Simulated assay, not measured.
Amino acid sequence: MADRSAEGAVAQETETPFGALSVLVVEDESFTRMVLAKMLGTLGVQAVHQAADGESALAAVAAHAPDLVLCDVEMQPMDGFGFVRALRASPESRSRTLPVVFMSGRVDGDREAAARASGATLVLAKPVTPATLRVALSDGMRAAQPS
């Protein structure tokens, strides 16, 4: 029996490429946070952490050491731009390179330029779908790999 369990675990790892990821969802709307967490679960992500704003996200990064952050742009009291600037200014090298995927209802050249200037890895248009989330996770993790 134990051998079959091990085989099943190996099969599950290969079937869900995101299973080993730890993702922090930073979103001020609790319903949207819940939907994103469920979508991540359907994509195989087993470790999903949540924060309601940039300030609590900084604490969550320190507590959970996620592999990737999905972060809303417009939040109070600290928005996504403030969060990622604070993250990049951290003395911890891991925080300075942690992939951050901004989520925004407005994705245009100006928003993307501002996101990159603040230190975000990429911008994902809202509403987020499982397909766009899958691409964002792949692209975000690929960007984190050393060249």
Score class of each variant (00 low, 15 high):
Arg111Thr: 13
Met1Asn: 14
Val100Glu: 02
Gly82Pro: 05
Gln12Arg: 11
Ala125Phe: 12
Arg111Phe: 09
Pro17Phe: 02
Met34Pro: 01
Ser147Leu: 07
Phe31Pro: 08
Leu137Ala: 10
Ala125Ile: 10
Glu55Pro: 00
Arg111Pro: 00
Arg111Val: 12
Ala47Pro: 00
Gln46Ser: 10
Glu27Gly: 06
Thr16Arg: 12
Val135Thr: 15
Ala120Pro: 13
Cys71Gln: 12
Ala125Tyr: 08
Lys126His: 12
Ser104Thr: 11
Arg111Asn: 08
Ser118Phe: 09
Ala63Met: 07
Arg106Lys: 14
Val35Asn: 00
Gly8Ile: 07
Ala6Ile: 15
His49Ile: 01
Arg33Leu: 07
Gly44Trp: 00
Met1Gly: 15
Gly80Glu: 04
Gly119Thr: 13
Gln50Cys: 07
Thr32Cys: 04
Ala115Met: 01
Met34Trp: 06
Asp79Ala: 11
Gly54Lys: 12
Ala51Asp: 01
Val45Glu: 01
Met75His: 09
Leu70Ala: 05
Ala125Met: 13
Glu29Arg: 06
Arg142His: 15
Phe18His: 07
Ala9Thr: 05
Phe31Asn: 10
Ser138Ile: 14
Pro127Gln: 05
Glu29Lys: 02
Pro127Met: 04
Ala47Phe: 05
Val73Tyr: 09
Lys126Val: 10
Glu92Ser: 12
Leu36Met: 02
Asp108Glu: 09
Val48Gln: 00
Gly82Phe: 10
Asp108Trp: 07
Pro66Met: 11
Val26Cys: 05
Ser90Pro: 03
Asp79Leu: 06
Ser93Cys: 04
Met39Leu: 00
Asp72His: 05
Ala131Cys: 04
Ala115Ser: 05
Leu40Gly: 00
Gln76Leu: 13
Ser118Asn: 11
Val101Ala: 13
Ser93Trp: 04
Val23His: 00
Leu122Gln: 13
Val25Phe: 02
Gly105Glu: 08
Phe31Arg: 11
Phe31Ile: 12
Ala47Glu: 04
Ala47Leu: 06
Pro17Lys: 03
Asp110Lys: 15
Pro77Ile: 10
Asp108Ala: 05
Glu74Asp: 01
Gln12Trp: 04
Leu21Ala: 01
Pro130Ala: 02
Lys126Arg: 13
His64Tyr: 10
Leu43Tyr: 01
Asp79Ile: 09
Thr129Ser: 15
Ala136Arg: 08
